[in-house]
Amino acid sequence: MTAKLYIDGREICASEGDVLIDVAADYGIHIPSLCYMRGRPCLGTCRVCSVVVNGSIMPACTARIADGMVVEVAQPEVADMRRALVEANFSEGNHNCPSCEKSGRCELQAVAYEVEMVVSRFPYRFAERERDQTARHIFLERDRCIFCQRCVEFIRDIDTGHKIFAIHGRGTHARIDIDVVLADRMPPEQVREAADICPVGCIIEKGRGYNDPIGKRKFETRSIRDRVLEGDKK
């Protein structure tokens, strides 16, 4: 059923039950996200796509289209809230862009540019989390993990369907872990996929890094906004 809704005062028609963040993108309205991937189940972990729906703040990736919906994306308070969420990620882990293999193709960095972040409003924690290099083809740079759970849900053992990545512990003790036996069975394309869907430089494919020169890296040739709005054909 077709529903009529309003995004920032603009009247939009969409199918009832569709995902708000996708509908907004179809109409040229970019809502940044670090966990949502179009066409895959919503995770709702990062909250960076928070918008105002009928007066309440909620993530645009979990909100489903309903008739008469009133959505605010550009409202300064909620835009600042999205930026605060991105800044919190930079404070919580160690996001040393100048020395990171993922720089230029990192979604956290690209989204930070989009929300015009220049510094974190929160104190930088310099968290200490041990890296895991035991898997044959994957480095796990734990202090960069933002706990989006993309790898946990979307990267599974091809034969058994078992999860390869998991988050252990809670709160400040939470850490991403890897099942080394299953990880070593991953075919090269799946290793590449795991590294690519990681929105930060936490899952790093061994032997790959700094492949593209500065100026020709993924989000420098085409911004994350354009990729979200026009479809991301790699």
């Binding site: 862009c97 100048p98 960095q109 015009e116 911004s223």
Partner: peptide, 8 residues
């Protein structure tokens, strides 16, 4: 603006 912002 986003197109000139750089962290590295």
């Amino acid at each position: 603006p986003a197109h000139i912002n750089r962290f590295d």
